[in-house]
Nucleic acid binder design. Sequence first.
DNA 1: TTTTCACTTTAGAATTATTATAAACTAGAA
DNA 2: TTCTAGTTTATAATAATTCTAAAGTGAAAA
Lengths: 135, 135
Amino acid sequence: MKKIDIYKKLRSSGLRPTKQRVEIAKFLFEREKTFHFTVESLNKLLTKKINSKFALATIYNTVHSFKAAGHLSEVEVRGNKTYFDTNVSNHHHFYDSETSELIDIDASDIVIQKIPKAPNGKKIKNVEVFINLKN
Amino acid sequence: MKKIDIYKKLRSSGLRPTKQRVEIAKFLFEREKTFHFTVESLNKLLTKKINSKFALATIYNTVHSFKAAGHLSEVEVRGNKTYFDTNVSNHHHFYDSETSELIDIDASDIVIQKIPKAPNGKKIKNVEVFINLKN
DNA sequence: TTTTCACTTTAGAATTATTATAAACTAGAA
DNA sequence: TTCTAGTTTATAATAATTCTAAAGTGAAAA
Ligand SMILES: [Mn+2]
Ligand SMILES: [Mn+2]
Ligand SMILES: [Zn+2]
Ligand SMILES: [Zn+2]
C-alpha cells in the first residue's frame, strides 16, 4: 500500500491524515501478511521503528478509529489485553498459547457441516472458530 | 449435587472445605444447567443468596482454585471481564452481545467437515466455535 | 481433647489495561 | 492568513484483577 493510498484510506473514512495516523497506518497497512497486535506491542514496535514516540492515548485513539472505520478488527484472545487484526475479512485463527500468537485461517479452509439453529428470535451474525495449539 | 458430594469434590481435589468454598461450590454446582458467570456477577448473586458476604479476593481465590482443579472452565468473551463456566466438558457457545449472555452448544451439535492442519510441529489441542448472535 | 500449623480469608494496597479530561496543537476550509 | 473543529497529549481516573501481610481456621497429630 503506497503513501497516496494511505491518505485515501484515511480521508475516505473521515479521518484527517495527521502525522500520527499516517505513521501508524503505514506501519499497520504497508505489509503483505496479516498483522495481529495489542496496543502495547504496537507501541513498542512503533517506538523502535520511528524515532519519535506518540502518546499512548494516541495509539488507543488511532487504533479505535481504525477499527470503527473498518480497517482493523478485534480478536478475542485469552488474556487481559485486547488484540487487533489487520485482516478485516471473515476468517478464523489458530492460537498458540505458548507464544500468545495468532495465525490466520482462511474462511474457506474451515467447513462446518452441521450447526445448531439460533435460539428464540435471534439470528446468527457470524461464526468464529479458534483452533488452540499445543506442542 | 448433595452436600456430601460437595465435600468430596473439594477434598478429592485437595481443597479444604472451608465455609466459603462450600457455600460457593453449592451455589455453583448444585444446579441442573450450565452456569456462566463473571466474578462480579457471582459476587452479586452470592450476596443476595446468603446473608453473609465474602471478600472479593475470596471469590477470586475460590474461582481460580476451582478452575485449577478442573471444576470450572474459562470462556473467552469479548469485553473486559473474565467469564467462567460450570460446564467443563468440550463444548461450544452462542454469544449474544446484546445481553452479554453465553448459551452452551453441545460438542455433537457442531460438526466440522474440513479443518486445516496445525503449523510446524504444533498439534491441535482443541477447537472452540463461537456463534455470535444478533436480533 | 487440645495443640499446632499450614492453609485460607480478608481488607486494603498495588498493578495493569483502558478510558476520560482538558489544555495545547494542527489540518485544512474559508 | 485566519479560524475552528478535530486531534494529540500528559495526566488523572476507572475498572478488573492480583498482591500483601495480618488474622483466622480446618484438621492432623499429640
Ligand atoms: Mn481477552
Ligand atoms: Mn475477554
Ligand atoms: Zn486474523
Ligand atoms: Zn458453556
